[in-house]
């Protein structure tokens, strides 16, 4: 048997099972497999966002494998999973934030209602006004509190008069639960606020342009428990007007704020179900292992 034949035998051996070994059980050494089809109920009737067979590549590496899911109107969906499972990558596809990464390539269909998000003719700035984003670290502009919130409405031409703009700024700050704390110092720098206040300022800035969907990428990971509780309460209030997708490392947070939860593992969507089911009787062993702290 020459070396080429030996290689073929070796490759056949490693490709015996087409399913992906996701995790070796820590104690038993038994293999846990990614399911061939997402477990649970990833689809809803009349969704706000509809994603089908989404693949994402960074150069030659595939980060997301054929993920299909829906996000319903005025729903809070939590995306959870171990580090590097692709949840943030997937979130960033939803308003084309991945466009800023040269080697990133997105395949599949992503729709915001009837709008194809990856339509080459689509104005990305307009898309990001409809699908806003809040990041892990609060990132206010080095401007005044007022200007931070007024920035979006100004560039999108949402207010013609100063009084209209004042109203948008006040409403957005009120919705973000920050108005009472900053109304007397709207001209001071946004960066001078505490971490939790800065994050609520960023949320106010996001909702100032009246988005339909708000994406949140670990919005509380840099905040203390009280600031976190305020943001979580805010998420609940905001879900009355907006559709929200949140990536979080805190499973308790996912359990507290979301109606549905999606569990990602190594770039696959393993399970998506209503949050109550995921946290009391998950249907897939990988989900169970992750949320009960058997690996992560």
């Amino acid at each position: 048997m020459d070396i080429a034949e030996k290689m073929n035998v070796f490759q056949d051996a490693v490709q015996v099972d087409p399913r992906v070994v996701a995790q070796e059980h820590m104690m038993t050494g038994e293999n846990l497999y990614i399911p061939e089809k997402t477990v649970g109920a990833p689809f809803v009737d009349d969704p706000k966002m509809r994603m089908r067979d989404v693949n994402v590549f960074y150069g030659a590496d595939q980060a997301i494998h054929g993920v299909s899911l829906d996000i319903g109107k005025n729903e809070v969906v939590a995306l959870i999973g171990p580090s590097g499972c692709g949840k943030s990558t997937f979130l960033r596809c939803m308003n084309r934030m991945n466009d800023t990464i040269d080697i990133c390539r997105v395949e599949g269909s992503l729709h915001l209602e009837n709008q194809d998000i990856y339509d080459p003719k689509l104005d990305v700035v307009e898309l990001r006004a409809r699908v806003g984003m809040v990041f892990q670290k609060p990132n206010p502009f080095p401007k005044s509190i007022y200007d931070n919130v007024a920035y979006g409405p100004r560039i999108h031409g949402l207010a013609n008069r100063k009084t209209d703009l004042d109203e948008i700024v006040e409403n957005s700050l009120r919705k973000a639960g920050l108005w009472d704390e900053v109304k007397d110092r709207l001209d001071s720098a946004g960066t001078g606020l505490s971490g939790g206040q800065q994050q609520r300022l960023c949320i106010a800035r996001t909702i100032a342009v009246s988005p339909e969907v708000v994406l949140m990428d670990e919005p509380c990971s840099a905040l203390d428990p009280i600031a976190t509780a305020k943001i979580e309460e805010l998420i609940r209030e905001l879900s009355e007007s907006y559709t929200i997708a949140i990536v979080t490392h805190s499973m308790q947070q996912a359990a507290r704020v979301s109606q549905r939860t999606a569990y990602f593992h190594l770039g696959w969507l393993v399970e998506m179900n209503d949050t109550d089911t995921v946290f009391t009787k998950p249907q897939h062993e990988l989900t169970e292992s992750y949320i009960t702290g058997r690996f992560g």
Partner: peptide, 12 residues
């Protein structure tokens, strides 16, 4: 139920 396989041994 693999109750003895948490990362935290104290939890087990």
């Amino acid at each position: 139920l693999n109750l003895d396989q948490h990362i935290s041994r104290q939890f087990n």
